[in-house]
Design a protein around this nucleic acid. Structure first.
Lengths: 223, 223
DNA sequence: TAGATTGTTAATCGATTAACAATC
DNA sequence: TAGATTGTTAATCGATTAACAATC
């Protein structure tokens, strides 16, 4: 697998895969998993592209950044391709995830089945509410945020999802960074700052609706 | 305001604003709203860019697609800029939104305060569970999906959020399209197909974690 | 083999950045 | 006025597409 990595990095050791490619990789994975459920053995760039609204050339190019997974004249074997993409994404083994902030959204995330299906397991939850700490929510142990250190080490937690009120987000982020967490999925609708070695993806639900409103208001005048 | 639109469209009446610009516009809006809460009267492209990790040139260029909102030598007046971006996004007036699928995630969305703050109001909820229909959840009336037609017309609903199980998503989407809904925020982790005049934004929570895993696994070797 | 489809190159297209005259 | 900052142009950079030899 290390021979693939060489194609991902330039001389300075920087990732040379366009950011958008990684987003599409997840879409390919999801789509091929559905094809498998539908009983398909193989697929190809034209089919996949058609399903997702991208060109066949783009599908091939995206995948080719990471290695040679296709079979000329045949296409891509679904099982093989799923395994390859999971390996690329790092989801060929399970990730332990912590949830911080057991409010409205946090509870929904704890119950959400989709995480486990893609290789993520929420193994601990954190809050500052004394009523919750020491108990379980949705079968998951609840700890005080101040105990992050212990639990993160103990459970090998590298990723956290943060669903605390906006005003608390940055200080929680600081604590999380402090204990060595490597990636943060931030549901608080604020920009957070982290040291450069920590990765952040923000999900702002209201912003998604806003983007939708824009596309609806600004549709092509032709349509 | 119609004089602005002319700059957004080319000869064929197609939108000529790069897609990525619209995403950043929402970020600018959120950031400037925070600056206002912090008591700031004006900002500028360097400050905004610094907060969001983009160049000052990009901030100016992004905004300039839609008109002239800045004041040379001064910067951007926060209140003015917020009003301008809201107008561009179409969120200077309130949107009525319907939620379809009152499960785990749906309930969280009904309770979510962030929507209202950005001008979205969930005015109706839909499900197929007879136990729920006719009642209220989180203060919102629950209807059967088959009554979409009436409610959508009655409440002037142009956008819907869909949080039904994956296997039900496409058929719900078909119903929603049938009654003339213009935009769909899809939380089901499947690709859905709609006629070209309908807009879709998909939010797949597991996919977000997957993207995060990738960025963590493939950090620059230099860092 | 003939047909299908990949991986990859070169050409095209689009988005970002740097620089600066115009403006307050 | 001098200083600051915009809006916009031209240059750079990066991503997508088309085409096709290589492969099964």
């Amino acid at each position: 697998m290390s021979e693939h990595k060489s194609t991902l990095y330039n001389d300075q050791g920087e990732l040379v895969v366009p950011k958008a490619v990684v987003g599409r990789l997840s879409l390919y994975l999801r789509e091929v998993q559905h094809l498998i459920r539908d009983g398909k053995e193989t697929t190809n760039s034209t089919e996949l592209g058609g399903l997702l609204g991208v060109t066949d050339a783009q599908v091939r190019k995206d995948l080719a950044y990471f290695g040679q997974f296709g079979h000329p004249g045949v296409g891509y074997r679904c099982q093989e391709l799923v395994a390859a993409i999971k390996h690329i994404m790092g989801t060929d083994s399970i990730w332990n995830v912590a949830l911080i902030g057991i409010g409205n959204l946090g509870r929904a995330l704890l119950r959400y089945k989709g995480f486990h299906e893609q290789g993520f397991r929420i193994v601990a939850a954190f809050d500052v509410d004394a009523q919750l700490i020491g108990g379980k929510v949705e079968g998951v142990d609840v700890f005080h945020v101040n105990d992050l250190d212990l639990v993160v080490q103990d459970q090998c937690i590298r990723l956290v999802a943060i669903s605390v009120p906006s005003h608390a987000a940055q200080s929680v982020v600081d604590q999380v960074v402090e204990v060595g967490v490597e990636g943060i999925l931030n549901f608080a609708p604020v920009t957070i700052s982290v040291p450069s070695q920590v990765r952040v993806i923000g999900v702002d639900l209201a912003m998604e609706l806003e983007q939708l409103a824009f596309t609806v208001v600004n549709r092509d005048s032709s349509s």
